[in-house]
Deep mutational scan, measured.
Amino acid sequence: TTVEVQGVEYRFDNPEEAEKFAKKMAKSLNLRVELHGNKWRVE
């Protein structure tokens, strides 16, 4: 599972970890998070 934060990609073996990371990043950067296939995008 991939998390893309403002163009930078982070890879996770565990989808739940990816989701937690994406939501945490979105909250700290005041952005929103969307799931596209198996990629979380924070923008």
Rank of each mutant, 00 (worst) to 15 (best):
T1S: 10
T1Y: 15
T1R: 09
T1N: 11
T2E: 07
T2C: 15
T2D: 04
T2K: 07
T2Y: 15
T2M: 12
V3L: 02
V3Q: 01
V3K: 00
V3M: 01
V3E: 00
V3G: 00
V3I: 02
V3W: 02
V3S: 00
E4H: 10
E4R: 07
E4F: 11
E4P: 00
E4I: 14
E4V: 14
E4W: 13
E4S: 13
V5E: 01
V5I: 11
V5F: 09
V5T: 02
V5R: 01
V5M: 08
Q6T: 06
Q6K: 09
Q6P: 01
Q6R: 11
Q6W: 12
G7V: 01
G7W: 03
G7I: 02
V8W: 06
V8R: 11
V8T: 08
V8A: 06
V8C: 15
V8S: 05
V8Y: 09
E9C: 15
E9Y: 06
E9Q: 08
E9V: 13
E9H: 08
E9I: 13
E9G: 04
E9L: 12
E9A: 07
Y10G: 00
Y10S: 02
Y10I: 05
Y10A: 02
Y10C: 14
R11I: 13
R11P: 06
R11C: 15
R11N: 10
R11M: 12
R11G: 06
R11V: 13
R11L: 13
R11A: 10
F12Q: 01
F12I: 01
F12H: 01
F12M: 02
F12G: 00
D13L: 08
D13M: 08
D13I: 09
D13S: 10
N14E: 09
N14D: 14
N14R: 09
N14G: 06
N14Q: 09
P15W: 08
P15D: 07
P15K: 07
P15N: 07
P15R: 07
P15V: 07
E16R: 09
E16A: 11
E16S: 10
E16T: 10
E16N: 09
E16M: 12
E16F: 11
E17R: 05
E17N: 06
E17Y: 06
E17A: 10
A18H: 00
A18F: 01
E19L: 09
E19N: 03
E19I: 06
E19H: 06
E19K: 07
K20Q: 13
K20W: 12
K20D: 12
K20E: 13
K20C: 15
K20A: 12
K20M: 13
F21N: 00
F21M: 02
F21P: 00
F21I: 02
F21R: 00
F21D: 00
F21Y: 06
F21S: 00
F21E: 01
A22H: 00
A22L: 03
A22G: 02
A22M: 02
A22W: 02
A22I: 04
K23E: 06
K23I: 11
K23L: 11
K23P: 00
K23R: 14
K23F: 10
K23Y: 13
K23C: 15
K24I: 11
K24G: 10
K24Q: 13
K24V: 09
M25T: 06
M25S: 04
M25H: 03
M25A: 07
M25E: 03
M25F: 04
M25R: 03
A26W: 01
A26L: 02
A26D: 01
A26T: 01
A26C: 07
A26V: 02
A26E: 03
A26P: 01
K27A: 14
K27N: 10
K27S: 11
K27G: 08
K27F: 07
K27Y: 08
K27T: 10
K27H: 11
K27E: 13
K27M: 11
K27Q: 12
S28D: 14
S28M: 14
S28F: 13
S28R: 13
S28H: 13
L29R: 04
L29W: 03
L29C: 15
L29F: 05
L29Y: 04
N30D: 08
N30R: 07
N30E: 06
N30W: 04
N30M: 05
N30G: 14
N30P: 01
L31F: 07
L31Q: 05
L31D: 02
L31C: 15
L31T: 07
L31Y: 06
L31I: 06
L31V: 09
L31R: 04
R32K: 12
R32F: 09
R32L: 11
R32D: 08
R32G: 10
R32Y: 09
R32W: 09
V33T: 06
V33H: 04
V33G: 03
V33I: 13
V33L: 13
V33C: 15
V33S: 05
E34Y: 13
E34R: 11
E34N: 09
E34A: 10
E34Q: 11
E34S: 14
E34D: 07
L35A: 07
L35V: 09
L35K: 14
L35F: 14
L35G: 04
L35C: 15
L35E: 04
L35D: 02
H36C: 15
H36I: 14
H36F: 08
H36N: 10
H36A: 10
H36V: 14
G37S: 04
G37N: 11
G37F: 04
G37K: 06
N38I: 04
N38V: 04
N38F: 04
N38Q: 05
K39V: 14
K39G: 08
K39H: 10
K39F: 05
K39Q: 08
K39D: 07
W40S: 04
W40N: 03
W40A: 03
W40D: 03
W40P: 03
W40E: 03
W40V: 07
W40G: 03
W40I: 10
W40M: 05
R41E: 12
R41Y: 15
R41T: 14
R41I: 15
V42Q: 03
V42F: 06
V42M: 05
E43Q: 10
E43W: 14
E43N: 12
E43C: 15
E43V: 15
E43H: 11
E43S: 13
E43P: 06
E43K: 09
